[in-house]
Design a protein around this nucleic acid. Structure first.
Lengths: 211, 211
DNA sequence: TTTAACCCTGACCATATGGTCAAGAAGCGA
DNA sequence: TCGCTTCTTGACCATATGGTCAGGGTTAAA
């Protein structure tokens, strides 16, 4: 089937149902972890009988793997802004903006990823070793270039990347803690803006980035 | 029983066994999450029959709660250096050092904590609302004082604390990812030193801290 | 309309898991 | 040594869970 072909009712239903399941799964995996999540919980949240999940995703692991892959794709896209930038202020600034936005709009995904990595990446170890490694070395090279061009202080690029990941993802992964410390209320528009600007400001100043 | 009293063989065994169980539990909870951990796994790692765990800790939840409380204590102690410092360079610098050291020596605890918070803090919500909140407002006040004294730029103290937690704990929680990107090898002494200095340098410069 | 492929689901199964318990072993004060 | 408390553990149980499957429904091409 090519992309231009008209989708049959069946195909549409198939895609819709799969998306329904994947969305529910992401939420449940984020809230309960892989071990704590049950197919029944996911089925209930999706409003489908459990056996139906097993029709589309043979095992719990397979469903989980698809969820994690989904997240990984989104994150890789967030880095597009990075490459096209002339220097660290634009590049890293835009990257922080993008990742903070994901943390705000898509916190479940971030949590699933964190959980997966924390438990030793049992299902996406190969991604870490291939795609993520390549992505990282590429970005590290770009940062090193900026350093060489005098656009920022000499900083270990890998450690800088870890810092970017840590600070931005923290707002998703530890969102509950932040919310609690914020009087039990989710961060508002103004607070998110402040968070973003704080992270950007501290890091960009911290690495001595110049335009 | 007072502290000066000699401990009987029974008491010593009791403490030793409990510590054995708690250590094993921390490791298993960190590696598998609460849902993925099983009492049998913990028992095997501790080298004890499962029924024995239930003698000391009635339920899995109770054992888990003790593990999380343990970690929380350690973290609170790490903040002692914070208060006694005359300014941000010493205070925040020492705090980063302390937390990085914990991430290195005690990564399992950090992971358990992260997991707990990510899943909505089902068992330590009360701690977040009381002890952690008080701790945070206290430290935020100190930071604000430093700002008012012109010892650092005007930065939102809460967001700065989040940044400190994020960057330091990342080295524990995402240790597996970092290790993979490091060619599958754990960070060496030199790399840990570099990581510490990077974090300190970027943040202290980033907030315009002056001695 | 026929037919074959695809989709849906209630009922079911094997297993794993948290937790219990009774009976015995070990420690300890008198 | 005696007697009481504390500790240890193999065997056991009820339940929850991942996964299966047969049979019925639906779609769409011919």
């Amino acid at each position: 089937m090519t992309a231009t072909e008209r989708l049959s009712k069946r195909d549409v239903n198939r895609q819709e149902t799969q998306r329904l399941i994947l969305d529910a799964a992401e939420k449940v995996f984020a809230e309960a972890g892989f071990g704590g999540a049950t197919m029944q919980l996911i089925a209930d949240l999706a409003g489908l009988p459990k056996a139906n999940l097993h029709y589309y995703f043979t095992t719990k692991e397979e469903l989980y793997r698809k969820v994690v892959q989904n997240i990984f794709e989104i994150w890789l896209h967030a880095a597009d802004v990075f490459d096209k930038a002339p220097g660290p202020v634009e590049g890293i600034g835009a990257y922080i903006d993008a990742k903070m936005e994901i943390s705000r709009r898509h916190p479940e995904g971030s949590k699933v990823w964190a959980s997966e990595v924390m438990h030793g990446a049992p299902v996406i170890q190969d991604y870490l070793e291939t795609t993520l490694r390549e992505w990282t070395t590429g970005r590290a090279r770009l940062i090193q270039k900026w350093v060489d061009e005098g656009k920022m202080d000499p900083i270990n690029p890998e450690h800088l990347l870890y810092m970017l990941w840590a600070t931005t993802q923290h707002y998703a992964d530890f969102g509950h803690q932040i919310e609690t410390l914020n009087g039990g209320k989710r961060l508002g528009d103004k607070q998110w803006k402040e968070a973003k600007e704080n992270v950007k400001r501290v890091i960009l100043r911290g690495i001595g980035a110049v335009t």
